[in-house]
């Protein structure tokens, strides 16, 4: 290269850039993590169990989605499948962000796989793939990952222990439903997603009494089939 592009200012430290980028969206994690903490306690988890779920599962959607199944005594296979389906979007994130982890060690990839939450992928994904220096890529990811994780654990604990101070007769399990509904809102702006969600909701109600909570799995498959059928029907209509 003949000329280095001149920099207006000395380079911003990676951790500061990561926090600056993450700040607006990551603050949305605060009500979410408090709500999850409250909901876990309302479903009957002990303080220790709730903290452990935050630590080990570290995925709000999977946590809130499986709680009703866990306390209803659903078989572990159904609980696990439900969590995995709710997490399938992470497979897309993983594929999209994997170039940023090119030439990184196994330990860094393992930690990255624990920390790859929605907010981090949405904000930092494009930035990481544009950064040529692998070491700076890792520092950006590390700072953002630690920040999201710390926020989640801290405010989760506030929800878990704060549940004691709220009135006993408040239906706090509904906090979990609210959190899931908030996630659904941006998805159903797309027609195919509306078809998917409405179909799975209808089948879930019709199949609610099936043994072993298997209705959830059937409803998800029905929703996916309906969404897929809708998409190919639309594609054919536009092609004609």
């Amino acid at each position: 290269m003949s000329r280095e592009p001149r920099r207006a200012a000395p380079e911003e430290p990676a951790w500061r850039e990561a926090l600056r980028l993450m700040m607006p969206l990551s603050l949305g994690l605060i009500p979410w993590s408090i709500a999850t903490g409250l909901a876990m306690r309302a479903y009957g988890l002990s303080e220790g169990e709730a903290a452990a779920m935050n630590l080990f599962v570290y995925a709000a959607t999977a946590q809130l989605g499986t709680l009703p199944l866990i306390v209803a005594g659903a078989p572990i296979a159904i609980v696990w499948l439900t969590a995995a389906v709710l997490n399938l979007r992470f497979v897309i994130y993983s594929a999209a962000i994997s170039p940023a982890f090119h030439q990184q060690s196994w330990a860094r990839r393992a930690l990255g796989s624990y920390w790859l939450v929605d907010a981090l992928f949405i904000v930092l994904g494009p930035r990481l793939n544009a950064e040529p220096d692998p070491e700076r890529r890792w520092r950006l990811f590390f700072a953002a990952g630690l920040w999201c994780w710390g926020l989640w654990q801290l405010f989760g604990l506030i929800g878990i222990f704060g549940a004691e101070w709220l009135p006993r007769d408040w239906p706090l399990t509904f906090m979990g439903t609210i959190a899931l509904l908030v996630l659904l809102v941006p998805l159903v702006k797309e027609a195919a997603m509306r078809v998917t969600a409405l179909t799975s909701a209808t089948v879930a109600i019709l199949a609610y009494d099936l043994p072993l909570k298997s209705g959830v799995v059937i409803a998800v498959l029905a929703g996916l089939a309906a969404g897929g059928a809708w998409t190919s029907w639309q594609a054919r209509r536009q092609g004609a």
Partner: peptide, 22 residues
């Protein structure tokens, strides 16, 4: 990718509906 993108909508619909209607 399309299927993976639809999975959360399918799961969320199935999980939320019983609490709202049953």
């Amino acid at each position: 990718q399309t299927w993976l993108r639809y999975a959360p909508a399918a799961a969320l619909g199935a999980l939320v509906a019983p609490d709202l209607f049953l």
